[in-house]
Every structure is written in structure tokens, then in C-alpha cells.
Design a protein around this nucleic acid. Structure first.
Lengths: 218, 218
DNA sequence: CCGGATCCGTAACGATACTG
DNA sequence: CAGTATCGTTACGGATCCGG
């Protein structure tokens, strides 16, 4: 009987970058972190979001992240009582890493590839770096059955899922959200075309959308 | 005869992070970028620095980075006339990504692993984020036959290789440099022990070392 | 020596099926 | 729902070889 010590692949370099990549450099890992930045997730949430990942690989990545202390498991309060994965504080400190990579990769989004999946959560996350600060608004976005809660204060916070009610909620389809994200449409235009409905404080939605508008092309 | 279209693996997500990882997420890629941030490199430079990479993989990674427009090949001026790889502007824009990952991975460097390679170039790169600005100094570091030129102005620049002469040069061994990097020693202490020699403006070296000192442990 | 290309074994990954 | 088990495929690692 052989006892196999799990020997992870490593660059064996005493360098912050190399050590970081030793831990989170494997395939899918940072995408899992990105999803968790929107709040706790269940196993099947990942399977839905990370289209193409296989169940064994997801299980292995999650186990590794838990072992590294970047992710922890928790039980959701009743009546849900489902088990979820959530970031630890060490894992949450990966946010600047994710944001920098997303910022650099933004250039490739200008020419969309056919068949690529779009998720409003990913878009909202990347909007964090657009927010210049100075507002105090809490609004919600409902996109095809999913709810995102955006809080603009000193910083921008965004989480997916049920949360305290906000001043206003905008409901729209993913395609419309995509257009907002890329500046191909405005809230007013989408509203006129019936692609966007606002409940509550309309001004709040307009202010938030304006604060998070894409950088002008010049 | 089959014509095979090179089909790269992709996450197929319309997301900046996923697209970035599609391009630079493969093994070794960001380490190659890191090395290039110190200046142009030759093929064999990579082989020496990236201990463990194989020649076929290095060739493939470089070819891919060139194809993506992040790296370009150039001929060094005579009498060297060697071919080198260097970053394009798009590639150089990966510096914040590398720095953020290195910052996050810094925590793992506190407990060194046996057998990990140390490179003063990697250390100097990660010192960029320590520099608070406000100085105007150019100094050199000679570490076991390698020359690094550090310029502190509005920002910190560091390149490896021959460059315009600086105000001062400090010569030391890698182990001594490591101690400086981690705050386990000071320039004065190393000098007294004969582990560090200064040519030229001693004050310049002291100022640079102080500006780049590791964050205090509290 | 430099700058790779080629071949092959192994480990990581991907697809599918199955289970408590 | 939350995984495990099995198996084929691809990427990676190790070694050698080759033209300039």
C-alpha cells in the first residue's frame, strides 16, 4: 500500500508572483474567486457560471482553495440551509488581482467573440474601478431572474442575491445590460424602447448608471 | 494531408478576467513577462532564470506572446548582435497585473521554502511598490556578476544590464541582497561585515535603500 | 554556445457516468 | 444537490538532437 503525498506543481521561486501563481495560477481558480467576489456561492452555482468546468475539477479547485485558507464553507441560515462557499479575508484580498487582470483584459472585449457567455455579475464587478466615488446610493438590478445590489458610497460594493431593499430597482435583460456596460445604450433609451423598467427612485438609477458609465472612447 | 488550425483553449466568457487568462493565463507566461519587465532578454536568459521550463515550452510561449503582440523580437546593436525579446507597449501594460499578483503573493515569502531560487531582479521589481516618490537618485546594484540600475524619480525604474553610469554602485552577494530585501539587515550592517561595498556616492545608496526598505512589521 | 525542434512519458484537464 | 469514479485527450516536463 502506497501513501502518496500530494505534491503540487510549483515554480520553486522565492518570488511573490511565482508563489501567487503556485496557489491561484491553475486553470479556473481565479474565475472561481471572481464569482465569489459577488458573494457566497453554492457548488451548482459555479457549475452554471463556469460553463465548461467539470465537476471533478471544480471539486478539486474548491478543496484546494479551502485548504489554502482562501475559501471556507458555511451553512446558510434556515430556511435555505444550503451549504455555500465564501471567501475568507485572505481570499478577498485577491480582489485587486482580479480587478487588474480584468482591467488589462478589457481591451479584448471590444471585439466580441461569437459564443462567449456574458454574465451581468462579471460586468458589475468590473464596473467597480469606474466608480469615482462621491455618491451615496443603493440600487438593485434585476437581470433575468438574478438580483444584484449595488451600493455606491465611498467605494462601490456589489453583491448578488437577496439583500436589504434599495431605493430603486431596474429590471432588464442581459442583452440590454450588456449595452449599458459597453456604452452602446443609455438608461433613458432602453427605457423608451421598453427594454428597461424602473421601480422606485428613478433618479437613483440614473445617477448610478451615470457614475458607472464606460470610459468615453475619445 | 491535414491542415490543423491551432485551436487554443479558451474559457469562452465575455469577461475581462477570463479573456486576460485566455491570453496570459497559461503556465510560465506571466513569469516570462515579469523577467521582461527588467529589460530585453535572450532565449537562454529565460532558460537560466526560469529554472525548470523546457525549451519547447519556452519557444511556444514566446511565439504565442509575439503572435499576441505583447512581445517582439529585436536585434541588439553590434558588436553583440544577439537577438532579444522585449515587451511591446501592450505587454508592458501587464506590469500592474504582475505587481498585484506579486503583492498578494508576498505573504508567502515570509516562510521561505527550501530549494526555492532567489533572483535579485525579482526582488527589485517588487520594490517598485514600496517607493513613495519624492527622490531623485540613480544608483546601481552589482549582484554576483549581474548589474541592476535603479532610478528613483517620480516613479521607480529598474532595468538589468549595462546602462549610463550612476552616482553610486553597491556590490553585494545575492544572500546579502535578500537580507536587505526582507529587512533582515541594513546597508550599514552589511558594510561593516564586509558583505557590501559601495563605490561612489555612499549617501545615494543609503537614501535609495531607505526609500525601498521593507514595510515595518508593526 | 545560441536558438530552437523533435520525441516521448507523465500529469493535468475534459467528458461522461454514477452515487449518497 | 454535492459531489466521486472512470477514462480519453491535451498540456506539460525531461531528454536529446540539430543547424547556425
Amino acid at each position: 500500500m502506497l501513501i502518496c503525498v500530494a505534491k503540487r506543481r510549483s515554480y520553486h521561486q522565492h518570488c511573490g508572483l511565482a508563489r501567487a501563481l503556485d496557489v491561484v495560477g491553475e486553470r479556473w481558480t481565479l474565475l472561481i474567486i471572481r464569482d465569489l467576489l459577488l458573494g457566497p456561492r453554492r457548488y451548482t452555482d459555479f457549475l452554471r457560471s463556469l460553463d465548461g468546468i467539470t465537476t471533478n475539477l471544480l471539486a478539486e479547485r474548491l478543496a484546494h482553495l479551502v485548504a489554502e485558507g482562501l475559501v471556507e464553507q458555511a451553512e446558510l441560515a434556515p430556511p435555505g440551509r444550503a451549504q455555500v462557499y465564501r471567501l475568507t479575508s485572505a481570499g478577498a484580498e485577491l480582489e485587486p488581482v482580479v480587478m487588474e487582470l480584468a482591467r488589462w483584459g478589457w481591451r479584448y472585449l471590444a471585439k466580441p467573440r461569437r459564443g462567449d457567455r456574458f454574465d451581468p455579475g462579471w460586468a458589475l464587478l468590473s464596473m467597480k474601478r469606474r466608480y469615482p466615488g462621491g455618491l451615496d446610493r443603493q440600487v438593485g438590478f434585476e437581470v433575468e431572474g438574478r438580483a444584484f445590489w449595488v451600493s455606491l458610497g465611498e467605494k462601490m460594493d456589489v453583491v448578488e442575491g437577496a439583500l436589504p431593499p434599495s431605493e430603486a430597482v431596474a429590471a432588464l435583460h442581459a442583452e440590454a445590460f450588456k449595452m449599458l456596460f459597453f456604452g452602446a445604450a443609455t438608461v433613458q433609451a432602453l427605457e423608451q424602447e421598453g427594454e428597461l423598467q424602473i421601480r422606485g427612485d428613478r433618479q437613483a438609477i440614473l445617477e448610478v448608471a451615470h457614475a458607472l458609465r464606460p470610459p468615453s472612447r475619445l
